[in-house]
């Protein structure tokens, strides 16, 4: 039992103040602090957890092991550049080959013409 009148007065004040707060006070404070009641968030978490089928960790680990990765823009760009460079090299090589063949053909034709001209010269003499 409290015999201190001041302490007694404080206790009465606290009891009186506490009586002003109704039963749902704590819930209202929490709702005010969080924007909505905490059980709603709990239900959201539970609903989300239900979305994961059993064996989820195994599926994640298997997928990670496969190392399947969607190619990044950088790697796609590099592949395009590599393809373009390979095509350009093929075109240059082909062009060079064709040019060399044409030169060889022309030289052969010129040699024939020269030989024919020499024959004609020799015949005329």
């Amino acid at each position: 039992m409290n015999t201190n009148p001041e302490q007694d007065a404080w206790s009465r004040l606290r009891a009186h103040a506490a009586a002003r707060l109704d039963g749902g006070f704590a819930d209202r404070v929490l709702q005010s602090a969080h924007g909505c009641p905490a059980p709603a968030w709990d239900r959201l978490r539970a609903a989300a957890a239900d979305c994961l089928r059993p064996g989820f960790p195994d599926r994640v680990l298997a997928a990670a092991r496969e190392r399947f990765e969607i190619p990044s823009y950088g790697s796609q760009l590099a592949l395009s550049a590599l393809t373009a460079a390979a095509c350009l090299a093929a075109v240059i090589l082909f062009h060079h080959h064709e040019l060399a063949a044409a030169d060889a053909r022309n030289l052969a034709e010129w040699s024939q013409i020269v030989a024919a001209a020499q024959d004609l010269d020799a015949g005329a003499r």
Partner: peptide, 24 residues
């Protein structure tokens, strides 16, 4: 962490059909 991450994904996307895919 799977349930906590699933809750976060659900709160963000508001769609249960993408939760598992995004969590993965």
């Amino acid at each position: 962490y799977q349930h906590r991450v699933a809750g976060f994904v659900f709160a963000m996307t508001n769609r249960s059909d993408v939760v598992e895919d995004l969590c993965q």
